[in-house]
Computed example of a mutant assay.
Amino acid sequence: MSRHVLQPRADRPDVAEATIGWDRPLATFFVQAFAPQVDGEDHIIEWCGSEPGELPTPEAAIAIATAFAIVPDELAATLHADRAATSDHVDSPWQTRLKRRLFGD
């Protein structure tokens, strides 16, 4: 799994932090945007890529992230490399069981 913190856009004062990355067990890229903390609690504005294969390409994730954060030019290449770095990894037996329980066969 990778996770990169992005700088929120200046025109989005409602965004305190945005992240993007690759989730190998779910085989999806993901994007998260968080509002400023209230009472010490994180509040999620957006979370895409929490279902298996939901965001299959870096470009799909970046398209969402641009609404919340400044996206560096090299980010797509970085995310492709993140996925490639885990291409030979396989799920452990407990990951397989959990995914079946959560998402079915």
Rank of each mutant, 00 (worst) to 15 (best):
G53C: 05
A63K: 03
T57K: 06
V90K: 11
I62Q: 03
P93M: 11
T86H: 10
A77F: 09
I20H: 01
E51R: 14
D73M: 08
Q37S: 13
D91I: 02
S87T: 12
L75P: 02
P93E: 13
H89C: 07
A76Y: 05
E41H: 12
G53R: 05
I20V: 15
R83P: 00
P56T: 09
I64V: 12
G53M: 04
H89A: 11
P36W: 12
A81Y: 08
H80Y: 08
A65C: 08
L26N: 00
L55Q: 01
S92T: 15
A33Q: 03
A85Q: 09
A33F: 05
P58Y: 07
T86S: 10
A27S: 15
E41R: 14
A18N: 06
P36L: 13
T86W: 04
W94L: 15
S50K: 13
A27I: 05
T66V: 14
F30Q: 00
T28S: 15
A69I: 02
A35N: 02
H43W: 09
V31E: 00
A33P: 03
F68Y: 15
F29L: 13
A85V: 04
A61L: 02
A27V: 10
F34L: 13
F34N: 06
D73L: 12
R83L: 05
T86G: 03
A81S: 14
A65S: 06
D23R: 00
T86D: 11
I64N: 01
A69R: 00
W94I: 14
D42I: 10
I45V: 14
Q37T: 12
Q37L: 10
A84F: 04
Q37R: 15
L55D: 01
H89T: 08
P56Q: 08
A69P: 02
Q32R: 15
P58L: 10
D23I: 00
D39H: 14
A84G: 03
A61W: 01
V90L: 11
R83E: 09
T66C: 09
A61I: 02
R83K: 15
F34E: 07
W47Q: 12
P58Q: 09
A35E: 04
A69N: 02
W94D: 15
P13N: 11
H80K: 12
A84K: 11
P93Q: 11
E17P: 04
P58E: 08
V90N: 08
G53V: 07
L55Y: 01
C48I: 06
V71L: 04
F30V: 00
E51F: 11
A67Y: 04
D73E: 12
V90D: 12
S92N: 08
V31N: 01
D42P: 07
W22G: 01
C48W: 07
D39P: 04
L26G: 00
R83D: 01
G49F: 00
H80R: 14
E41W: 11
V71I: 10
D88T: 13
T19W: 09
